[in-house]
């Protein structure tokens, strides 16, 4: 349970980055959401051996990261999370698809290797697009935008509260875990037979806490029907940025450089 502190930090790391004030941060959330989605669609629509035509798409994460002043390390660590499953699926291609694609000097590159590389590149690009969206858009703005897009408020509110309570419950878990470890002679992991009462206890405490917090919020005028802040209109810069990304994605999709 020692990693709880780490995951608490991880949970809020992106939100902290989103508090920046760069050009990218100032773009309208709708523009950022749309461009991320269209970028991912364009990337994913490439064929399985299209490693080379995909490389120009690297400009998107590299330029955005630089413009938004986001350190590489934080995002790279998360990209690795998506790695195992993609690697597994990609490696299987290496074994099943041994036809030679081309030779470079004495090295033969098979179609399997080519498709593995393509999968990994697609993974990097799509994951980065999603991460860059949250790393440059504050959580509050993101959910406000979802509301304006008429996503059911029940869902958006649950989404917000899950995010907020995750930190609270992680802290609670940490103190319960420490108490358990101290009383059980320093066991590292929970025993299976204590799982029910441990998580159940955590849950009941959490329920009570949620009710108290909700009551307190209601006392201060919170309601599901609270009118959200007036939306910021789309500015010229937002439209230009969106148009540039969409055009670039589309052009690179249909006009092949390599």
């Amino acid at each position: 349970m020692s990693n709880i502190h780490g995951s608490l930090g991880e949970l809020h790391a992106l939100d902290a980055l989103a508090a920046g004030r760069t050009t990218v941060h100032r773009l309208h959330p709708l523009a950022k959401l749309c461009s991320a989605l269209i970028f991912i669609l364009a990337v994913v629509s490439f064929g399985r051996y299209d490693f080379l035509p995909l490389t120009p798409y690297l400009f998107y994460p590299f330029i955005l990261m630089a413009l938004a002043e986001i350190p590489y390390g934080i995002l790279l660590k998360r990209v690795l999370v998506a790695l195992p499953f993609c690697l597994f699926a990609g490696l299987s291609n290496v074994f099943f698809d041994r036809e030679t694609a081309f030779t470079l000097g004495s090295v033969t590159i098979s179609y399997g290797v080519l498709s593995l590389l393509t999968i990994l590149l697609k993974m990097y690009l799509s994951v980065m697009a999603a991460l860059l969206l949250v790393a440059t858009t504050p959580f509050v703005e993101l959910t406000a935008q979802l509301r304006r897009l008429r996503v059911p408020m029940q869902f958006v509110t649950v989404f917000e509260m899950t995010y907020r309570y995750a930190g609270v419950l992680l802290l609670e878990t940490r103190s319960m875990g420490m108490a358990y470890a101290l009383r059980s002679g320093g066991k590292r992991a929970l025993e299976m037979r204590h799982m029910g009462s441990f998580v159940g206890g955590l849950l009941l405490r959490g329920f009570d806490r949620a009710e108290r917090i909700h009551a307190a919020m209601r006392c201060r005028g919170y309601s599901l029907r609270t009118v959200p802040r007036a939306p910021r209109p789309l500015r010229g810069a937002d439209v230009w940025a969106l148009a540039a990304i969409v055009t670039a994605s589309a052009v690179l999709r249909f006009v092949r450089l390599f």
Binding site: Q154, T157, V158, E160, M161, T162, R164, Y165, A166, V168, L169, L203, G206, F207, R209, A210, E211, I213, H214, L224
Partner: peptide, 9 residues
């Protein structure tokens, strides 16, 4: 809804 949030958490 808060209960649902805490359950997700």
């Amino acid at each position: 809804i808060p209960i649902m949030g805490i359950a997700g958490a």
